[in-house]
Structure formats: structure tokens, C-alpha cells
Amino acid sequence: MIEFALFGAGRIGKIHASNLVRQPGVRLKYVVDMHVPSAQALAQMHGAQLADVVQALGDPAVGAVVIASSTNTHADLIIAAANAGKAVFCEKPVDLTVARSRESAEAVRRNGVLCMIGFQRRFDPTFAALKARIERGEIGDPEMLIVTSRDPGAPPAEYIRSSGGIFRDMLIHDLDVFRWIMGDNAQTLHATGSCLTDSAVREAGDIDSTAVTIRTKNGLLCQINTSRRAAYGYDQRFEVLGSKGMLQAGNVRPTEVSAWSAGGISVDVPEPFFLERYRQAYAAEMAHFVEALTKGTPVRTTIEDGVRALELAELATLSWKKGMALELRSDGEIEAMTEA
């Protein structure tokens, strides 16, 4: 039996708790959250206990932790859990700064603990199937990736102010998809953006619409377009052009029923938000983490993946602010960036 401590009893914490307790040989022992009513309600739901960080990490019976708390706590909790010898599942991003993310990765390496970062899109059945077909050579060598990622609406301004900005908060998933699908590292990146959907976003110091172009070290190309507003639902899709053809991964809709009439043909709009769109992916990633714990298999999304995605997010942020394309001259070394 593997006993877990969960940090964070908010929206994503509830999802992870529910998926975790479904796994065989697992027990959720502690729930930790500064908002006691939320922690208490979630703990009661799953037969767990309330605890603080010291109690949860100091219990030798706890073998692993799930970090679903606010982003500004991630690095501290990863480092503390690694130093306590606990396996770690942590929601993205590792931190809002590359330096602190690298410190977290070093703590994981130094203590030799298992650590997985929650890039759930890699576990989406449609996206994973597309990746498998690329690996089987169905479209030859991938040459270009085009990603569309649009939220139904912007989050509250209070959240935006502490989120690290759209590139770290929203596009970090798309940047991870780029690395995963193309299997290459970025060399040049140009990011631009505007505030087109909500003046509150501008007042919070951020943008809500972006366009990012990436060229890899091997000359592969990627374009990512994102928006905080899609009136028709949560729009998540991409296509990969290869030397022998193209693969597309489309949206998920509540049903696949289509209506045909003299007035036209209609289908359901996409799922309303990420909770519904990635329901299966969240379940699959937690099952994968538990399997890695019990069978010793490598995790698919490592803390190094988290660091690399954040490096690209920071690069994109700087590109947008400077209004120019930037080059990553040394892989992973953002300090070495120069004008392209």
C-alpha cells in the first residue's frame, strides 16, 4: 500500500484526489491546504486526515506526494518532498522562474526520487494516438507542427497577476506539446501578442492573444496560436505535416451526434473547458504515476521536461517584451539568448 499526501484542495486537487483513490494499492492519507474548509471537505470525501506540510512530509509512512497547490508553492514543496525521500507528482509549472525550477530538478536528482510533472496533454487519448502514429512512420519525417489552443474565456484578473503571464501559465502546455511531438529543441523563437478580448487582462499587465513561431536546431518549424476567448468552447487541436502526409488531432465534443436538415448540418461545439476536455487524460496520467511507483517504470513527463518547457515560456515572454525574434544559442541556457 502506497500512502499519499495531497497538497492543494482546490479545483485541480479535487481531480487528482479522485483519480488517485481509484488506483489499486493506494491510500490518500493527508490533505494539506491553507484553506481549512476546502481541505476538510476533500479529506472527509476520501477518508483522509488534515495535516500541515511538516506533518505530511515527516510521516515515514507517506511514500509519495501530489502537489496541486498554487504555483508559487511548487518548487518549495518539490524540494522539501525530495529531501524527505518522497516520490513527487507536481502540476505544471515547476515554478515561475527557470532558476528555481533548476534548483528543484537538482534536488530531485540529488535525492534519487521519482518525479513527474503534470503535462496531461501527453496522456490525452487522441494526442497520444497521433504521437504513436508518427513514431510508426505513418507520415514520414515530421516537418511542421501547427497548434491551436484557445480558452473559452480569461481567468480573473487576480489570478492573472500572480500567474507569471500567458506564456508561463497557458502556453507552457503548448510548448511541451511542441517538444513532445517534434522531438527536437528550439533554436529560434519569435513571440508576439495583443490584448484583444478583455481589458482587465491588459490592466493586470498581461496579454490574451499570442502567436509564436519556433525553428528547431534541425530546421523543423512550429506555429502556436492562442487566445483567452473562444465563444464556441475549449478549442484544442493541432496538425503535423510530414514528408509522407499529415496527421490532425481535433477537438473533443460532448457527443458525436450530427443533425442533418434542409437548413444545414450541425454538430456539438467542443467541450466547455479543460476539466471536461482532459478528463480522461488526468485519469491516465495519475494511473501512469502510480504504475511508475509500483513497477519502477520511467515516467513520461519528467522534471526536466518541466524545466525545458519553462525555459521556452521565459524565452517567449522575453521575445514578446523585446518585440524581436530570439535565438537560444546553447540548449537550455536562456542567458545565452541573443537577437536572431
Rank of each mutant, 00 (worst) to 15 (best):
M170L: 15
M170N: 14
L171R: 09
L171P: 14
L171D: 15
L171V: 08
H173V: 05
V177N: 12
F178V: 06
F178G: 04
F178N: 08
W180R: 03
G183W: 02
G183F: 03
A186M: 12
Q187A: 12
Q187F: 11
T188C: 14
H190E: 15
A191C: 06
A191K: 00
A191H: 01
T192D: 07
G193R: 00
S194R: 11
C195I: 08
C195Q: 13
L196K: 06
T197D: 11
S199D: 12
S199F: 07
A200C: 09
A200H: 09
R202M: 03
T210F: 06
A211N: 10
A211L: 08
V212H: 05
V212L: 11
V212S: 02
T213E: 15
T216L: 12
K217C: 08
G219C: 05
G219F: 03
L221K: 11
L221M: 14
L221Q: 14
C222V: 01
N225M: 01
T226S: 13
T226W: 03
S227Q: 10
R228I: 01
R228L: 02
R229V: 11
A231H: 05
A231I: 02
Y232H: 11
Y232F: 15
G233Q: 02
Y234H: 10
Y234L: 07
Q236P: 06
Q236K: 06
Q236H: 02
R237P: 10
F238H: 03
E239D: 10
E239V: 09
G242Q: 02
K244N: 07
G245I: 07
G245R: 01
G245E: 02
M246I: 14
M246K: 14
A249G: 12
G250M: 04
R253L: 10
R253K: 15
S258C: 04
W260G: 13
S261I: 15
G263L: 13
G263S: 12
G264W: 12
I265K: 05
S266T: 15
S266K: 12
S266C: 13
S266M: 15
P270S: 02
E271G: 04
E271L: 13
P272D: 06
L275N: 15
E276F: 04
R277M: 08
Y278N: 09
Y278H: 11
R279Y: 05
Q280Y: 00
A283N: 02
A284W: 00
A284L: 01
E285G: 00
A287F: 08
F289H: 00
F289A: 00
V290M: 01
V290G: 03
V290Y: 00
E291A: 15
A292E: 09
A292L: 10
A292W: 04
L293G: 10
L293N: 10
K295V: 06
T297R: 08
T297M: 02
R300W: 00
